[in-house]
C-alpha cells in the first residue's frame, strides 16, 4: 500500500474521537464507521474502548456484526483496545449471556479481569520491544490464554498478565494508548496496515 491508508474507527459507542486523533497523528486518514457501506470503504478498522455489550448490541441491531466478521475473516487489519480487544477475541469469559464477538484472534479474554473502576490503574510496560510506555487500564480485560499463532506483545506488571497481542493482521491491547497521547501503538498498527 503506497498512499496513506484509510482507517475506520467503529463509532457505535466509546472513545472514538481519541482513536481518530491518534491515527491522524501517525499520518493515517481516519474516518468513523457506523454503517455497512462505510465499512466497505476502509482499508482497516479500529474497535475503540467502550462497553463491549453495548457495541455488540448496536452492531447486531444495525446489521454490522456479520459484515464486520466477514471483513475480519477476509484479512482486513484491525486493532482493538479494551472493549475492542474483547470484540476481536475468539472466546470470552465474564461476558453476558449470549454475548457475541467478531473473533479473529485465537485467545480467551476475561472481561473486567483487573476489577472494578476503583481497581483501574496506570502502569509502565514494554510494548513490542519499543521501550517502556505508560499504559492506562480501565475496568480492563486481560488475556487468559492464547493459541500457538498468537504473538504476545506486552505484559502488565500486576500478575504478569498478557495485555497486548497480535495474530497476523489483528492487534489488541487491554489498555488505552489513545488516552495518553503516546502514538507508538497506533504507529505500530499503521505500519502493519501498510505492510499487508
Amino acid at each position: 500500500m503506497t498512499s496513506a491508508p484509510t482507517i475506520g474507527v467503529l463509532a457505535l459507542q466509546g472513545d472514538v474521537r481519541e482513536h481518530v486523533r491518534s491515527l491522524q497523528a501517525t499520518g493515517a486518514r481516519a474516518v468513523t464507521v457506523r454503517r455497512p457501506a462505510e465499512l466497505e470503504a476502509v482499508d482497516a478498522l479500529v474497535v475503540p474502548g467502550g462497553e463491549s455489550t453495548t457495541i455488540w448490541k448496536l452492531a447486531e441491531a444495525f446489521e454490522l456484526l456479520e459484515p464486520l466478521r466477514m471483513r475480519v475473516k477476509s484479512g482486513m487489519p484491525a486493532y482493538g483496545s479494551c472493549a475492542g480487544m474483547i470484540m476481536l477475541a475468539d472466546r470470552i469469559e465474564g461476558g453476558v449471556e449470549g454475548q457475541q464477538t467478531l473473533g479473529g484472534i485465537d485467545m480467551v479474554v476475561r472481561r473486567n479481569a483487573f476489577g472494578r473502576q476503583v481497581d483501574s490503574f496506570e502502569a509502565s510496560l514494554d510494548f513490542a520491544g519499543r521501550g517502556p510506555m505508560r499504559a492506562v487500564f480501565i475496568r480492563a480485560p486481560w488475556v487468559e490464554s492464547v493459541g500457538a499463532d498468537v504473538e504476545v506483545l506486552g505484559l502488565a506488571e500486576p500478575g504478569d498478565r498478557i495485555v497486548a497481542v497480535r495474530q497476523g493482521p489483528l492487534l489488541a491491547t487491554s489498555f488505552h494508548p489513545e488516552l495518553t497521547g503516546d502514538t507508538r501503538v497506533h504507529s505500530y498498527f499503521v505500519e502493519m496496515v501498510r505492510e499487508l
Binding site: 457505535l12 466509546g14 481519541e18 462497553e51 481497581d119 483501574s120 480501565i138
Partner: peptide
C-alpha cells in the same frame, strides 16, 4: 508500586469509555 490507581487520567478515562452511550 509501579501501578497507580485513582489518577486523573484513570478517572477521566473511565468517562471517555462511556461516550456515545
Amino acid at each position: 508500586d509501579t501501578a497507580v490507581t485513582g489518577t486523573a487520567r484513570v478517572k477521566r478515562g473511565m468517562a471517555e469509555m462511556l461516550k456515545g452511550g
